[in-house]
């Protein structure tokens, strides 16, 4: 394109008067500076392209609506618009922060769905029913203490009061209950993990 020697003011007034090529000259003259200014703030090519486009859409609309007062400050005016749009962009991102996955890091490697899937739910159910069957095999006094402690979440003091034994006896029964459960589990190679 031929280098235009007219000042910005002349080109702006020509554009307002209907000369579309004047806009082309203005964009060509200032695009690098405005684009670099936006990029130096956002450091992203795509966002820079968007903000650059929005800036000139505002410029075009303002000029066509006759809202621009020519005071020989076309470039500072456009830069001000670009600056405001950059601020808008950061405000919008602060309200709704966006996380982008990089090549070496994926957010889904640290964020996982904590709920069990269908298979794991079935396994969990099986493990729980296996444990209940094993508890049924324990001697009655041990079984009673274990159920009160684990399923009813009672303290050893409460257990001792309810079963009319000392706390030490209740603790001992609990200990033997666990030892016996482990023995049976080891003996029969029962897997109780999900």
């Amino acid at each position: 394109m031929k280098q235009n020697t007219h000042t910005d003011a002349v080109l702006v007034s020509a554009y307002i008067n209907g000369d579309e090529s004047a806009l082309s000259h203005l964009i060509t003259r200032h695009k690098q500076r405005i684009y670099s200014f936006i990029y130096s703030k956002v450091y992203n090519r795509d966002i820079t392209e968007d903000i650059f486009q929005d800036t000139f859409i505002k410029v075009i609309r303002s000029l066509k609506r006759g809202k621009y007062n020519e005071e020989g400050k076309f470039l500072p005016w456009v830069m001000r618009i670009a600056h405001n749009l950059v601020i808008d962009h950061f405000r919008k991102n602060n309200r709704m922060p966006k996380f982008e996955n990089k090549d070496d890091f994926n957010i889904f490697s640290v964020l996982s769905d904590g709920s069990l899937n269908a298979e794991k739910q079935i396994i969990k159910g099986q493990v729980e029913s296996d444990v209940r069957r094993l508890i049924e095999e324990l001697p009655d006094d041990q079984k009673e203490v274990l159920i009160m402690r684990i399923y009813k979440e009672m303290s050893f003091k409460e257990i001792s009061l309810q079963t009319d034994v000392s706390i030490n006896t209740a603790l001992g029964r609990m200990r033997y209950a666990l030892i016996n459960l482990r023995k049976v589990i080891d003996k029969h190679n029962i897997v109780l993990t999900n």
Binding site: T28, S36, Q53, I60
Partner: peptide, 17 residues
């Protein structure tokens, strides 16, 4: 400092105008 918008962006703006 050497960066510039894509040609499509400039063309879009001229067409929009």
């Amino acid at each position: 400092a050497k960066m510039a918008p894509k040609d499509e962006t400039v063309k879009f703006l001229l067409d929009y105008s």
